[in-house]
Computed example of a mutant assay.
Amino acid sequence: MSLDAPLPRRRHGERHRSDRGNALRAGVLGANDGLVSTASLVLGVAAATPDASAVLTAGVAGLVAGAMSMAAGEYVSVHSQADTQRADLERERAELDSNRPAEHRELAAIYEERGLTPALAAEVAEQLMQHDALGAHARDELGLSETSRAQPGPAALISASSFGAGAALPLLAVWAAPGDVLLPAVALSTLLFLALLGATAARLGGASALPGALRVTWWGAIAMGATAAVGALFGAVV
């Protein structure tokens, strides 16, 4: 197994929710951050000044800055994870080259812990190592597979795109709402979108929709309330 080759993956045709775990995490995190941070920024500026153009300009700037920050942060974080996985594979390959019998015993011991008899565990380990020694150790010793493989580029793209999509929703409310109802329009629409996002993410992950919607909405409401209070305070002072 080459270090740059795909990691072991399931051979059967079934699809599991865990297969899309990384993409789902990055997408939900990005959209949630886009909604909460941009809505909070917009509410803070709107509480400080009635100038709708200034509010919209701040929101657009927040969208661009946030999307780039999400992309950079996700890329660096996931790239570090990929470097760690690559280093583990390199170390495992070196150990296979230097002491293959010990690696065979190590793999057989793993299968024994999972319930196989010693003789069967040794046989299974031998056959798997003959087929793909590094792949067998990557999967069963290191816990690496195609679904858990760190992919910095896609993770950064998903995070930036989802952040931008989430951030665009409060900006649409700013653009559409009259100035005298801008604050409640942004707050209520953001809470609605957050509830939908939380419920959708929970259902995609196989969990109950209501708890997912409530926890996302709760923290979003706190963030918006705090930022609006700060904006109103500094606007009054200035």
Rank of each mutant, 00 (worst) to 15 (best):
A122R: 02
S148T: 11
Q151H: 14
A165S: 14
L171N: 11
L194V: 01
A108H: 02
L169M: 09
G164T: 05
E146P: 04
P154Y: 14
R105N: 06
H131G: 10
T190Q: 06
N99S: 13
T190K: 13
G143N: 14
L191A: 12
T200A: 15
E146T: 12
N99I: 03
S159G: 07
A167N: 03
L192S: 08
L128V: 07
R139G: 13
S162C: 13
L134W: 00
M129W: 15
T117Q: 13
Y111D: 10
E106N: 06
L144S: 00
P118D: 07
P170E: 00
D132H: 01
P178M: 10
I158Q: 02
P178K: 11
T117V: 10
R149C: 00
A173D: 09
A177W: 12
P170G: 03
W175R: 11
H104R: 08
E141Y: 01
A187G: 14
A167C: 04
S148I: 05
E95L: 10
V174Y: 12
A167K: 02
T200P: 07
T190Y: 09
A150W: 08
G205P: 08
L204W: 08
L196E: 14
Q127P: 01
L171E: 08
R203W: 10
E123A: 09
A201E: 03
E106I: 01
A201I: 02
L204V: 08
P178V: 10
A176Y: 06
E123F: 04
A150V: 14
G153S: 14
H137I: 13
F163S: 03
S189A: 11
Q130G: 04
A108D: 01
E146Q: 12
E146V: 07
L107Y: 03
V174Q: 05
A173C: 13
E126W: 00
R139I: 10
A121Y: 02
G143S: 11
A176T: 13
D132I: 03
E123G: 07
G206V: 09
L183W: 04
Q130I: 01
G135S: 02
W175I: 14
P101K: 09
E113F: 00
T200R: 05
L169N: 07
V174P: 07
A138D: 04
E113A: 02
N99C: 02
A202K: 05
A165F: 15
S159T: 08
M129E: 14
L197G: 15
A201S: 12
R149S: 06
A167L: 01
L188P: 03
S189D: 05
A94C: 04
P152H: 13
L107W: 05
A138N: 01
T200H: 11
A187F: 15
R114E: 10
Q151G: 03
D140Y: 09
A133I: 10
L172V: 12
L128G: 03
Y111F: 15
A121I: 03
P152A: 05
A187Q: 13
F163K: 05
A176K: 04
A165Y: 12
S162Y: 12
L116H: 03
L197N: 15
L196W: 13
G166Q: 06
S148L: 10
I158W: 04
L116G: 00
L116I: 01
F193P: 01
A121G: 01
A138F: 05
G206M: 02
A122H: 04
T117Y: 09
L197P: 11
L134Q: 04
E106V: 06
